[in-house]
Amino acid sequence: MNSGSVPPLSPERWLEEHGDALYRYALTHLRDEHKAEEAVQETLVAALQARERFSGEASVRTWLVGILKHKVMDVFRHESREVALEEADEVAAEEDGEEDSFAPDGHWSARLADWGDPMRALENAQFLVLLQRCLEGLPPRLARLFWLREVMEEDTEDICKELAITPTNLWTMLHRGRLGLRQCLDKSWVGSGVKTAARER
């Protein structure tokens, strides 16, 4: 039935059949309706312009989602560049997170809280609400990387390639993000905060 490698030239139909699915993908990754719509639009325009490169091996949906992934990463890349303008502040905030967590001698600066039974925490809606709030409180670049890697579970390799950072770079940022989240959850989940610099050694 499919006579050649060129998909039927019908962007109207792509929009009709795949528009919602593309939009949902964009929305979960970008968490902004306007940016998501723009990403879908850019994807369809790019697809139309590059239609002769469609191999016909994958489905149209897979092909379009592949393009959309790049468009989504473009948004992140673009935002990273904007962040770079205030980079000094941003990087300082990211590093602070790590410095705060440890005393100069490398010990934890405060006793870590016990979060209780993990299964119960996971089933507790409040824990997830707090987690989300703590995530939003991270420095913006960390928050975005975290969302991509830990929440959307995108490949490390893809993220590094698209954002032009090394894996070591990414891991360091993720680690800082985890320390920041952890600290935030210690305060908000356990409620009482952490008082003294106790060393359990």
Partner: peptide, 19 residues
Amino acid sequence: NCRKFERQLDLMRKALSTL
């Protein structure tokens, strides 16, 4: 403390995936 951190990491990863 580090044993706690290990458990917290595990829980955070699962919770983030749930999100």
